[in-house]
Design a binder for these strands. Structure first.
Length: 878
RNA sequence: GGGAGUUUAGCUCAGCUGGGAGAGCGUCUGCCUUACAAGCAGGAUGUCACAGGUUCGAGCCCUGUAACUCCCACCA
């Protein structure tokens, strides 16, 4: 280490953050080795997608995790933070396809599956590494030796194991059902991957003629183009308007098909015309109705949402083009009777925003009911606890109403579905290992072309990363994990699926706590997004202000689960705080002759005060970290460091320190060192770099602050009397400063200060502070007012009366005005206290402590009032 | 149609199990005081959304109202 006393004048994080991070890495502090005499504390990272780079939301997520991990590590836990990235099926594939299109004008089909996947792996290597480096910049203390990827060998093995197990239990099945289809991504989507948005649309009323009759029924639809897939019109069986036509046949317009009128409870008599066209292949409800009535399912669109042959002359048109054209035709034929405005919810692909098409399709599904049940129980009985608690409601709500999960995707990037179809006998074989021949007939097999939903593999993350399905030492020691830190936006996607997967495959809930945070928004409260261009790059902030400032900003002023606004002024404030710490440390180091870090034998009043305050801080920080109240913990640290330590303690001990070589100077150095270095430990989880840098310069034991012991509350360091006394002195000093400011006494002007008090000991102890901090050149402690000059300015504080003989500055009328104002205020206070105390209910029912406090206050105010009244009298007699 | 959240100083937000309203930024005044002007000292600013209720006592608990936000939901 360089010369201890010579650290830079201004905080410059770029000078040491990278160096320190590399040292930690090289020393292997991030690596966790299972140890029987330590308790494990495990976090698995929510793996960022390898689609691009980290945004502010990641920065928040990683910061919170790192705070917890560092805290637990310092507390002596075997703390493991498993890092990794997610292959992010659709998202990544879209990116690579986009790049391919822009750079080479090709599609994935031009390359073919194999070549295309090579490109995606190149992409993954490039961006995966970039993300890892960004994580490091933030200071994340992940165990890099255990870095994982959702498509690496181990995870792939886990995926296969799970798929086969679930299939064998009948919990994975293949079926033709209505799924959400994205015509742009050309793949099925799960319900969770569809976002609903209110859209202005229309309600078209179309006439269907009753066969062999002049009668018509009018159906109302928002999707006229699905008409070609209609296989019935349904009415409510109770609807008397239509009873007579149930069972009759209708002529389906624009086609030569005939469809029946059926009666089904599903139809709401009050809504629309009470007649519903039934299109089993394009609507989930109609699908159900179709099943009940044994209706044909006619799919009228291709995978890209163009119309197929069933649309007759409209074949080949896009669905919306077709809609326009057919409506025009219907209008011409007089079959379009009404067009109403109608706004309704439309599903959109969460990746590309394209309106999804509900469509019947053969896909793989996970049967959810049997899996959801234990997952509900695990949260109900507290095996997994959400923080804040309210999010368990969100979770329950979803879990209790969950539908089967569509897990197949018509993509290339992902885990290939391990199902093999025999070309000869048609047998489907699901297998952990790849097979080439049919186990039944020996014929040639072909693997399913589709891949699994990304979330299928992320659902296994807490245990697949620890070695499952192998029975590894890691799995045994670190699993179940301790805390999952993530945003509320992926509770359904991810958290819930990890919970039921873990319970099913490991028999244990995957984590004890789910610590939920909110979204990082821009300064106007909008979501940060590419399209708005309002995103702020965390790396940009780090290079400008340092990782510590960014982390501090993200950890401060935010309650769990709430969104936060991010703006640069907050980062500046954090940087200023870092600078404050830097300079307080610089000051301490400049005045240091000692080489040991311990408390001195004899503590002065202010020493006891700061040590006692520090001790309470330890308690508060620890308690709040244990409650996941990171924002509160860090603000306590801020207040202590800035207000107590810098603004008061350092100022108070300056006279001692400047008395070079004295015993008092040395003991002050010990206290400064002790309090500062331990405070750095408390702050280390939040601001790892600056705290390490400072701790290294201060006298210390051990190699690094990050593996030092987190401070513990120590009852022996509690000095309540000293705190009380210091508070009297501090408020007296503030009062003097205040009076001087009001009277416009130049700061350079020293004055005499006479303190009249019965508590001579207290104020005598603070005499030197009064001299220095209250700009007094001479302080006299007196037992009575005998020595006070007639026209001195008087200040009444608790326990004393202070006089400033600044006769030349005194304006008698003004002074009287001020004194009368004070008198009035005190009378008000006394009235309030007496009101309370004369209330029988209060005295009888309030806790004794509260009542005593009120009594004490009353006494204090009465005492002060007496003094103020005396001063008024004295002033008037002048 | 369900569910959740928010409403506190000009702005952004804290306020733990009910016991005299807080921070940062901004603003005003005075200071380049030998750690820090990214600073120091001092000041101003609040019917804690509204209305009831419980309580000796409510920003906090209960009921209702309003505004905003978000999530979930198969009304064609």
């Amino acid at each position: 280490m360089e010369d201890n006393k010579n650290i830079a004048k201004t905080y410059d994080p770029s000078g040491f953050e990278d160096r320190i991070y590399n040292e930690w890495c090289e020393k292997g502090y991030f690596h966790a080795t299972p140890s029987p005499d330590k308790k494990p504390y495990t976090i698995v990272i929510p793996p960022p997608n390898v689609t691009g780079q980290l945004h502010m939301g990641h920065a928040l997520d990683e910061t919170l995790q790192d705070i917890l991990i560092r805290y637990k590590r310092m507390q002596g836990y075997c703390a493991l933070w498993v890092p990794g990235t997610d292959h992010a099926g659709i998202a990544t594939q879209i990116k690579v396809e986009e790049e391919l299109r822009v750079k080479e004008g090709k599609t994935r089909y031009d390359l073919g599956r194999e070549k295309f996947l090579e490109r995606v792996w190149d992409w993954k290597n490039l961006y995966g590494n970039r993300i890892i480096n960004q994580l490091k910049k933030i200071g994340s203390s992940c165990d890099w030796d255990r870095e994982r990827f959702t498509m690496d060998e181990g995870c792939s093995k886990a995926v296969r194991e799970v798929f086969v197990n679930l299939y064998n239990k009948g919990l994975i099945y293949q079926g033709s059902r209505i799924i959400n289809w994205c015509p742009h991504c050309i793949t099925a989507l799960s319900d969770a991957e569809v976002e609903h948005a209110e859209q202005a649309g229309h309600f078209w009323h179309i006439k269907y003629q009753v066969k062999d009759s002049d009668e018509f029924v009018i159906i109302a639809t928002t999707r006229p183009e699905t008409l070609f897939g209609d296989t019935a019109v349904a009415v409510n069986p109770e609807d008397e308007r239509y009873t007579h036509i149930v069972g009759k046949t209708l002529l389906l317009p624009l086609t030569d098909r005939e469809i029946p009128v059926i009666a089904d409870e599903y139809v709401d008599k009050e809504f629309g015309t009470g007649c519903v066209k039934i299109t089993p292949a394009h609507d989930p409800n109609d699908f159900e109705v179709g099943m009940r009535h044994n209706l044909e399912q006619i799919k009228v669109m291709n995978d890209d949402a163009t119309m197929n042959k069933y649309a007759g002359k409209y074949e080949g048109m896009d669905r919306y083009e077709c809609r326009k054209a057919m409506l025009a035709d219907l209008a011409e034929m007089g079959l379009l009777v009404k067009t109403e405005d109608h706004s309704h919810n439309v599903g959109q692909c969460y990746r590309c925003g394209t309106t999804v098409e509900p469509i019947i399709s053969k896909q793989w599904f996970v049967k959810m009911k049997p899996l959801a049940e234990p997952a509900i129980k695990a949260v109900k009985n507290g095996d997994t606890k959400f923080v804040p608690e309210r999010f368990s409601k969100t979770y329950m709500n979803w879990m209790e109403n969950v539908f089967d999960w569509c897990i197949s995707r018509q993509l290339w990037w992902g885990h290939r579905i391990p199902a093999f179809y025999c070309q000869d006998c048609g047998e489907t074989t699901v297998s952990k290992e790849d097979i080439v021949t049919c186990p039944r007939c020996g014929g040639k097999v072909k693997q399913d072309e589709d891949v699994l939903d990304t979330w299928f593999s992320s659902a296994l993350w807490p245990f697949s990363t620890l070695g499952w399905p192998e029975k590894t030492e890691d799995l045994d020691y670190f699993y179940p994990t301790s805390t999952l830190v993530t945003g509320y936006d992926i509770i359904f996607f991810w958290v819930s699926r990890m919970i039921f997967s873990a319970l099913e495959h490991t028999g244990k809930a995957p984590f004890e706590h789910v610590f939920i945070h909110g979204l990082v928004r821009d300064s106007q409260g909008r979501k940060m997004s590419k399209s708005l261009g309002n995103g702020i790059d965390p790396l940009e902030i780090i290079s400008q202000y340092g990782a510590d400032a960014l982390r501090f900003t993200l950890a401060t002023g935010n309650a769990p689960g709430n969104d936060m606004r991010f703006y640069i002024e907050r980062v500046e404030a954090s940087r200023n705080f870092a600078n404050k710490i830097w300079n307080a440390s610089r000051f301490t180091l400049m005045n240091l002759d000692i080489t040991e870090n311990k408390l001195p034998e004899n503590l002065s009043l202010e020493d006891k005060w700061i040590v006692s305050k520090y001790n309470s801080l330890v308690k508060e920080v620890t308690e709040n970290l244990d409650k996941f109240e990171l924002g509160i913990a860090v603000s306590k640290l801020y207040d202590f460091i800035w207000d107590s330590f810098c603004d008061w303690y350092i100022e108070l001990v300056k006279p001692r320190l400047f008395d070079k070589g004295s015993e008092s100077a040395i003991s002050a150095q010990y206290v400064l060192t002790y309090v500062l270095s331990n405070t750095m430990k408390l702050l280390h989880p939040f601001m790892p770099f600056i705290t390490e840098e400072i701790w290294q310069h201060l006298p210390h034991e051990g190699e690094s602050i990050m593996i030092s012991e987190f401070p513990k509350y120590d009852a022996a360091l509690n000095f309540p009397e000293a705190e009380k006394e210091m508070e009297l002195i501090m408020s007296a000093i503030s009062a003097v400063r205040n009076r001087r400011a009001e009277m416009n006494v130049p700061p350079s002007k020293k004055a005499k200060l006479i303190i009249v008090t019965e508590k001579e000991n207290v104020f005598k102890g603070g005499e030197v502070f009064f001299q220095k901090l209250a700009s007094a050149s001479d302080v006299e402690i007196a037992a009575d007012r005998g020595t006070v000059p007639a026209n001195a300015v008087n200040i009444v504080v608790e326990g004393a009366e202070l006089f400033l003989p600044l006769s030349e500055l005194v304006d008698k009328d003004k002074e009287l005005e001020r004194l009368n104002k004070e008198k009035k205020e005190l009378e008000g206070e006394i009235k309030r206290v007496e009101g309370k105390l004369s209330n029988q209910g209060f005295v009888a029912k309030a806790p004794q402590k509260v009542v005593d406090e009120e009594r004490a206050k009353g006494e204090k105010y009465r005492e002060m009032l007496e003094k103020v009244e005396a001063s008024i009298k004295a002033m008037e007699n002048m």
